[in-house]
Amino acid sequence: MPTTITPPPFTTARLDALPLDPAYAEEMAVVLADPALYVFTGGGPPDPAALRARYERQCAGSPDPGELWWNWVLRVGEDGSLAGYVQATVRGPRAEIAWVLGTPWQGRGYASEAAKGLAAHLASAAGVRELVAHIHPDHAASEAVAAAAGLRPTGEWEDGERRWAANPPPPARAEKA
């Protein structure tokens, strides 16, 4: 498993996943400004200063040396706007993942594309073999994203959210000639 605090970037067909940087706080505060984004998770829209402070903590990394906090903002290739984020807490071969897309970018398949790209990236860049997400049982859109990324609901619950899990295939290895 890599030990770098800063995750490597990755791309999908329509998105660039860029390592989180506090400099994105002001633009991301606009992306995350709709109170509807917090119906299932609680809380409310962060102001730019609070978001910058959060990003500084996240970029500093986990205080646990065996755990990586990898966070990316999602830039739409077509117009260059930031649209949301994906994140992974990586501990050995297991990663807990999450995603959030700003309201204007929802319904376009970006979240599913980002989650699939994240799953593939974690398998190849960090050797992740188990993915986990926790999803509110009434959040059908997040359930659809999890399913698109290959996760399935389990019978386990935590803080009112259902645990979804997957074991992605190992990354393809190059054949030697």
Rank of each mutant, 00 (worst) to 15 (best):
T103R: 15
G102I: 12
P48M: 02
T41C: 02
V100N: 07
V30C: 00
Y85M: 11
A23C: 10
W72C: 11
G61V: 05
V73H: 10
L101P: 04
R52F: 08
Q87W: 12
Y24F: 15
R91I: 05
G102Y: 10
C59W: 06
A88H: 04
R108G: 05
R75F: 10
L51E: 07
T89P: 00
R94V: 15
V73W: 04
L37V: 09
L51R: 04
A25K: 05
Y85I: 00
A50D: 15
R57I: 11
F40S: 02
N71R: 14
E96T: 10
V30A: 14
S81N: 14
A95G: 07
S81M: 02
R57H: 09
G109D: 13
A29M: 09
Q87I: 00
L74A: 03
A95T: 10
D21P: 06
P93L: 06
A49Y: 03
G109P: 13
V100C: 09
D47F: 02
Y24A: 13
P65L: 04
D64K: 07
Y55M: 11
A83G: 08
Y38W: 09
G102C: 10
V100S: 14
A50F: 08
G77E: 09
G77S: 08
Y55S: 03
E27F: 05
P19R: 12
P93R: 06
A29D: 03
V39R: 15
Y85W: 13
G61S: 02
A83Y: 09
T103E: 15
P104T: 12
W99V: 15
R54I: 02
L82V: 13
V86T: 13
A95N: 12
W72P: 05
P35G: 08
W99L: 11
Y55N: 01
G92T: 15
P104V: 11
G43V: 05
A50V: 06
W69R: 14
L51Y: 08
R57Y: 08
R91T: 15
P19N: 11
V90K: 06
W69H: 14
R75D: 14
Q58S: 00
D34T: 04
N71A: 00
W69I: 02
P63C: 01
T103C: 08
W99P: 00
R108Y: 03
Q106Y: 13
L82C: 04
G92H: 13
G84H: 03
P104H: 07
I97R: 00
E56W: 12
A49P: 06
G102T: 10
A95D: 12
A53Y: 07
D21T: 14
C59P: 03
D79E: 07
L51T: 03
S62T: 11
Y110V: 01
F40G: 04
V90D: 05
G92N: 13
E27H: 09
V86I: 05
V100P: 01
R94G: 02
W70P: 00
R57F: 02
V30P: 00
F40I: 02
P46Y: 04
G66E: 15
G102D: 14
F40E: 01
A95P: 10
G77L: 03
L74T: 00
P35N: 12
P93K: 00
Q106S: 07
S62M: 10
L20C: 12
